[in-house]
Simulated scan of single mutants.
Amino acid sequence: MRTVKVGTRQSALALTQTNQVIDRLRRIADDAGIECRFEIHKIVTRGDQILDVTLSKVGGKGLFVKEIEQALLDGEIDMAVHSMKDMPWERQPGLIVGATPERVDPRDCVVTRGGVPLAELPRGARVGTSSLRRSAQLLAYRPDLKVESIRGNIDSRLRKLESEGFDAVVLAAAGLHRMGWSDRISDYVSPDVCVPAVAQGALGIECRADDTFMLDLLGRLDHAPTAFAVRAERQFLGRLNGGCQIPIGAYAIVRDEADGGRLEMTAIVGSPDGSRLLKEWGRGDDPEALGDLLAERLLAQGADSILGELRG
């Protein structure tokens, strides 16, 4: 029997989604007659250590995955469970995403005091978020809001709603669903108002590229339509050389899952204050070509000047 060592961040959400993945893999292994057991290894990443600075100012890529990937390369763990939106475009040589499980709700959501929906928040309401992408789109939608940066795990950000006097906090709906906290959600933010982060709601299960045992096991967990959509979104991210320090978003939908499907994707690039918000939509059958297409269209609109100012 093989012991599979599973690497993960140590937050409540990371551990919850890791255990959910392990439960599914146990059932898959049992059904296939594969003998294995799972052992969780908690790993602290740089992004977990720096909580008093906005992600955009921390800079760099792989803030929440680098240390975990190093543990994979060093053989300390056999697989890692990542939130796919945390994974940088550049792949680490020797590692591969062995599975992209079925995506959970990719939308952003709002948790407010009193359950007030986003549209009905009072003028000048204080809204907390950890994302420049959300800030840009919320301010474009409602310039009257006072959007402020908050950092921390999902539970600590929810606590700040009361402890720091926010009227609302904006989070990824997927995290609340995975934690079983859907009842806390006051309002879902339509992708028409706030395009989600690249791969939001999806997980990336990573292993070593030469580990045939893990590749076989993880391949049974992969959800082809989710992987197909995420490929388009991540290609867009890579073409713009984006990351958490840049206000960009992309959301792809597979319209016909039966045969791999026809993709539709919306993508945005915006200035953090919401004064400029560039948006494009397109469809196609090739995920990488679609990602490149929307990136090129946005660059033609002037996205390069926005990105250049932010990186400068």
Rank of each mutant, 00 (worst) to 15 (best):
G308S: 14
G312A: 10
V195Y: 02
L121I: 01
M265R: 02
R142V: 08
D167Y: 04
D292P: 09
M265A: 02
M265G: 04
E280M: 09
R103M: 07
N241G: 15
E120I: 07
G7C: 09
R276W: 12
V195W: 06
A140I: 00
K57I: 12
A119C: 08
D108Q: 14
G33A: 06
G219R: 00
R178Q: 15
G242E: 03
L293H: 11
G180N: 04
K42Q: 15
G312F: 09
S11F: 06
Q10Y: 11
V127E: 03
H41T: 15
E148F: 06
V269Y: 03
A267M: 01
E264V: 12
K85V: 10
M179F: 07
Q235M: 15
A136V: 06
L307M: 12
A71W: 01
T16L: 01
E162G: 13
I96G: 09
I43V: 10
C36E: 06
I185L: 08
V189D: 01
Y188N: 07
G261K: 05
M1W: 10
A125M: 02
D48H: 10
Q49Y: 10
M1D: 14
C207E: 03
G291S: 01
C36S: 11
L294R: 00
N19H: 14
Q301I: 11
T54I: 13
P88G: 03
D192A: 03
G59P: 02
V127F: 05
N153R: 06
A232T: 07
V21C: 06
E76F: 11
R9Y: 11
R37V: 14
G308Y: 08
G201Q: 07
K61Y: 14
D292A: 09
R142K: 09
V195G: 10
P247H: 11
C244A: 15
K160N: 12
L13N: 03
I68N: 03
Q235I: 10
K57M: 11
G98Y: 00
L161P: 02
E69Y: 13
A303Q: 05
I246V: 15
T8Y: 06
G260W: 03
S186Q: 02
G98M: 05
I77K: 01
E296T: 11
R255E: 09
D187M: 03
W281P: 14
Y251G: 10
A174E: 04
L63V: 06
L263E: 01
R184I: 11
L263H: 02
E309S: 13
G270A: 07
I34Y: 12
D183F: 11
R262Q: 14
M214I: 05
A29Q: 04
R123N: 14
A172M: 04
P93V: 09
E309Y: 11
